[in-house]
């Protein structure tokens, strides 16, 4: 249930990486930013997915998703000037079971009433081939921590005349680090946030 928190930072980082990834040399020329202005990419929520997974009673891996999130990535010619910001609505968690979703939203886990939004703000982006190593501040459950994740550029394409870039990354973290230590006897402390996003060049 703490997975959602993790997913948010991951999604943010992934989205940022995706946007950043649109401008590398390996990417199509259409996505290359100019030195004078950063290219702005907006995450397309219809074609993006932020998932989380957690181990249940030590036996199985359970998955869930967040249905509402936003992302903005600005890519400059100098990667050091690029930035990524994401916002995720914690109340939009969806595991396919209403009762479980309500519990995950509660103070036992996400505490969506108290902390309705999780954010990621990048502080550093480094390109390593098709992999983007993003460092940023992830705020979840009222706790802000620096996180790092590697995002792989899946590819670039055209969607109704628009240039889009896709990235995929997985972030592993401990939910207790963000103050979500409920039911550690049933649900693992370790969580994985799976971020698979498509972002559109503005």
């Amino acid at each position: 249930m703490r997975l959602p928190h993790i997913l948010i930072p991951l999604s943010l980082a992934v989205t940022g990486a995706v946007l950043l990834g649109a401008k590398p040399a390996s990417a199509p020329a259409a996505a290359s930013p100019t030195a004078s202005a950063a290219d702005v990419y907006i995450v397309d929520p219809v074609h993006s997915f932020i998932l989380f997974s957690i181990i249940h009673v030590g036996a199985s891996r359970a998955y869930g998703r967040f249905n509402e999130f936003e992302g903005r990535i600005e890519l400059a010619a100098d990667a050091a000037e690029s930035s990524v910001r994401f916002e995720l609505k914690t109340g939009s968690v969806d595991t396919g079971n209403d009762g479980r979703d309500k519990h995950i939203r509660s103070a036992d886990f996400l505490n969506a009433g108290e902390f309705p939004v999780a954010t990621f703000q990048s502080t550093q982006v480094i390109q390593d081939g098709d992999v983007y190593r993003v460092t940023g501040d992830f705020t979840l459950h009222g706790v802000t921590k620096e996180v790092k994740l590697d995002m792989e550029l899946v590819g670039m394409g055209k969607m109704r005349g628009n240039t889009v870039a896709g990235f995929h990354g997985e972030l592993e973290f401990k939910r207790a680090d963000f103050g979500m230590d409920g039911m550690l006897n049933m649900l693992s402390d370790e969580m994985t946030l799976i971020i698979s996003v498509e972002a559109k060049l503005q």
Partner: peptide, 13 residues
């Protein structure tokens, strides 16, 4: 109150 809050999803509260 405790029972209702628990049934509504939050063991914590």
């Amino acid at each position: 109150i405790a029972v209702v809050v628990g049934l509504s999803g939050s063991v914590n509260y």
